Measured scan of single mutants.
Amino acid sequence: KDKDLLKGLDQEQANEVIAVLQMHNIEANKIDSGKLGYSITVAEPDFTAAVYWIK
């Protein structure tokens, strides 16, 4: 199951987060929520590491 990592990002921010996570071998998903911006989700086992790397 995926957990929400970040919400309300613009496309550039979302792409930067995806890139950082991929560099650390964390699979992440970018979801277009329309006017609400983009959300990033990661698998539950990767959540703690993902939070660490996006600081």
Rank of each mutant, 00 (worst) to 15 (best):
A50R: 00
D46F: 09
K1C: 14
G34C: 06
Q11K: 11
E27G: 09
K7P: 02
K3D: 03
Y38M: 04
N25G: 15
V20C: 14
K55V: 12
G37T: 07
V51L: 13
A28S: 06
A19D: 04
A28F: 10
I54E: 03
E27M: 15
E27I: 15
S33P: 01
D46G: 03
A50D: 02
T48P: 12
D32A: 09
I26H: 00
D46K: 05
A43R: 11
G37E: 03
T48V: 12
I18N: 00
E27F: 13
V51M: 14
K1D: 08
K30C: 13
W53C: 06
I26F: 01
V17F: 10
K1M: 10
A28I: 05
Y52D: 11
S33H: 15
P45E: 15
D4Y: 15
A28M: 03
A28R: 01
L21A: 00
E44R: 06
E44V: 08
E12F: 11
M23K: 12
I54S: 04
Y38E: 00
N29M: 11
A43I: 03
V20L: 15
E44I: 06
E27Q: 14
Q22N: 09
K35T: 11
I54N: 00
D10H: 06
K3R: 13
G34A: 04
A19Y: 11
M23I: 07
V17Y: 11
L21V: 01
V42I: 08
G34P: 04
V42L: 04
Q13S: 10
L36K: 09
D2G: 11
I18C: 07
G8H: 08
E27A: 13
D10M: 06
Q11A: 13
V20M: 14
L21I: 01
D10F: 04
L21D: 01
A50Y: 03
G34L: 04
Y52E: 12
I26P: 00
L6Q: 04
L21G: 01
A49L: 12
I54G: 02
A50S: 04
H24V: 04
V17G: 00
I54R: 01
G34H: 04
A19E: 08
M23T: 08
K7W: 13
A50P: 02
I26C: 05
T41G: 02
D46H: 07
V20A: 07
A43H: 08
E16Q: 13
Q11M: 12
K55C: 15
M23R: 12
V17D: 00
T48E: 14
T48Q: 13
E16G: 08
K35H: 10
E12A: 11
L21T: 02
Q13H: 09
L5M: 05
V17S: 02
Q11H: 11
K30H: 03
H24P: 00
A19L: 11
E27C: 14
A43M: 08
S39L: 11
E44C: 08
Q13A: 11
G8W: 07
Q13V: 07
D10N: 13
N25S: 08
K3P: 05
D46N: 06
L36C: 14
K7Q: 11
I31V: 10
K7F: 11
E27N: 13
S33Q: 14
K55T: 14
N15W: 07
P45S: 15
N15I: 07
Y38I: 10
G8K: 03
Q11Y: 12
D46M: 08
N29F: 11
D10C: 13
A28K: 00
D2Q: 15
I26D: 00
L9G: 02
N15K: 06
G37M: 06
A49V: 06
A43N: 08
K30Y: 07
E44N: 05
I40R: 00
S33I: 08
M23V: 07
D10P: 05
K1N: 10
L36P: 04
A50H: 02
K1T: 10
V42T: 01
E12M: 10
D32T: 06
G34M: 03
N15D: 14
A28Q: 01
L6A: 06
G34E: 04
V17H: 02
I18V: 07
E27S: 14
E12Q: 12
Q11D: 12
Q22H: 10
L21R: 00
V20H: 15
A14H: 03
T41N: 04
L9W: 02
K7H: 14
D46W: 10
A19H: 09
S33V: 11
E12S: 09
A28H: 04
A14G: 02
D32K: 09
T41W: 11
L21E: 01
Y52G: 07
Q22E: 08
K30A: 12
G37P: 01
Q11E: 15
E16I: 13
K30T: 07
L9H: 01
D4I: 15
V51T: 08
A49G: 04
K1G: 10
